[in-house]
Design a protein around this nucleic acid. Sequence first.
DNA 1: AGCGCCATCCAAAGCGCTTTGAATAATGCG
DNA 2: CGCATTATTCAAAGCGCTTTGGATGGCGCT
Lengths: 342, 342
Amino acid sequence: MNLKELSEKLGLSQTTVSRALNGYPEVKEATRLRVMEAARQFNYSPNKRAMGLATGKSMTIGHVIPTSTQHEMVNPVFGDFVAGSLEVYSQRGYDMLFSAVPDEDEAQTYRNMQRKGSVDGLVLQGPQVNDARIGILRELGMPFVVHGRSSGVSDPYSWIDVNNKRSFQRATEFLLDLGHRRIALINGLESMDFAQRRRDGYLVALHERGIATDPELMRSSEMTEVYGHHETRDMLQLDDPPTAILASSLISAIGVRRAIDEAGLVMGRDVSVITHDDELSYLKNGQDVPIFTATRSSVRDAGRHCAAMLIDQINNPTDDAKFELLEAELVVGRSTGPAPQG
Amino acid sequence: MNLKELSEKLGLSQTTVSRALNGYPEVKEATRLRVMEAARQFNYSPNKRAMGLATGKSMTIGHVIPTSTQHEMVNPVFGDFVAGSLEVYSQRGYDMLFSAVPDEDEAQTYRNMQRKGSVDGLVLQGPQVNDARIGILRELGMPFVVHGRSSGVSDPYSWIDVNNKRSFQRATEFLLDLGHRRIALINGLESMDFAQRRRDGYLVALHERGIATDPELMRSSEMTEVYGHHETRDMLQLDDPPTAILASSLISAIGVRRAIDEAGLVMGRDVSVITHDDELSYLKNGQDVPIFTATRSSVRDAGRHCAAMLIDQINNPTDDAKFELLEAELVVGRSTGPAPQG
DNA sequence: AGCGCCATCCAAAGCGCTTTGAATAATGCG
DNA sequence: CGCATTATTCAAAGCGCTTTGGATGGCGCT
């Protein structure tokens, strides 16, 4: 059933039916009711493509899946972020379109997306330091919001991010207060913006207390369980091993714990661990008492905010770039304790 | 730049340009080359919506995200499955569209999707026992492939699944061979089809060896880390605790291990653990030596196969329903050992 | 009665593409 | 050389919707 058929059935013009359905005022209320009823009865719903062609809007938002082709790794955060965004999208009548972007011609892909008219806006995930994509998108004039920020990009753009620097600074201070002096950082890939900010926070905290930094204690890679395990095992074998570890994600923290266990040590007593916790739905940080002391910030919530922000921007294209900085909460769990007397 | 502009620039009709670009034979080769070159130069790419309107195809495949609204949980497998599908989609020129389906009017949502013409086919994830969605989709005549199966649905439909029954039967036999008699099953939600099949395999194995089953040792819920931990802790406190545990996913297995550790026991010695391993990119089961003994089957690979299958079906709508049963591999790691002498 | 003004409704154009049905140019053959 | 073919190209219709620019008729008012 399409508009034409429906309007014929009603003995009205397509114009009137269309207007009745879309809430325009130039339709008698009685007529509108009649139309709505018929639409329901005949199970009519407009063809999105045709609608898009006519209006120039697609009511679709594009997400570009950050498939770091290097390691073929999907960010574990992905699912929950998407779920959060989707809540908002579906509520506001938007669909969500995915594309995998081959690293090579990313710019081209964006251009195509726009020209093809398949999306009204884009969400950029996993921004790197000095991320070139932001410039491209700005140039194209396509509304977009970045999940995260990109140091080095001076042009304004909309973003939503966790205060990574502050949260890792605080976490480090917390460990320092507990008497730890050998504090390791198991960070994400250094090319990722969030990793840099976390490192900054970590370094600032150490610096303010006059603690020398040790390159041996700063590791960075993709945040898998195996990686957390590997680096921890390695560091625990140092002459002067760390008494505390800052991990970039719960996933890698689990690897950290495994390595601690294997070394015959006890987490929270021999080695303290703090991790960032994105509150993934399938990997909660314990139930009542947190397993890990953690900097906590819901990525699902970030997805919601990001979606809302983007839709706003689509509806008010002339507005200035907006941003939102979410503060992570420091929750104290069982993985931290006073530094062992050495 | 659109078709009209491009054709004017070339001094050709839209028809010819369109045909040249789409590889139709009734165009002089020289002309085709000229057109292609101009298209490249002016950075032309066709508007997808218009194309869709004209052809009736959207070159888009819909995924319905299984947001079990009950617990707001996103399946951890989601990201990798999507990544796998996306590889194939983008290679074959398809986009991927997401919708969250509010549990209530699922049927309605599917109908809309079809009528709106937003997708050419659908992937159904997380099928339950006797899943009503399959009937709806069949009725609508929209091509679809189920990731998993649904016991109780007698009409034919296309699916791709892991041989869950067999793999859990084998895993159970493996434990029996090691001398275990108290074997627990920490399963997914019983309403999910895969959980039932795994339980079946588990029960058959026990039955064939004449081992009585104990309801106390069979747990089922959503497969989170916390859940694995909780159930294990609970079971280890039984008068006659299990000496081996079969876990439904690596995530919950990690919780199992945590509970074992906390109880002061050693995994692989005091309690053996086997888990199913989907080979998630961010959560590999160890590097060289597997951490857990596991039934292994790549969900990313399943995503690829599923996508290919669906596209085939879209292109050959009259073909019979197809299916593919993937066998999981049993890899032996460090989490299993002979049953302790009690 | 005659006028302007709304309130309603409609015909038709247009969004950017594909495709049908024809026209035109080029070619082959007797 | 003339005609039937075949190779190229084109004009126009159509996909299903929105939206512009009128129509139409009823109303209050002078």
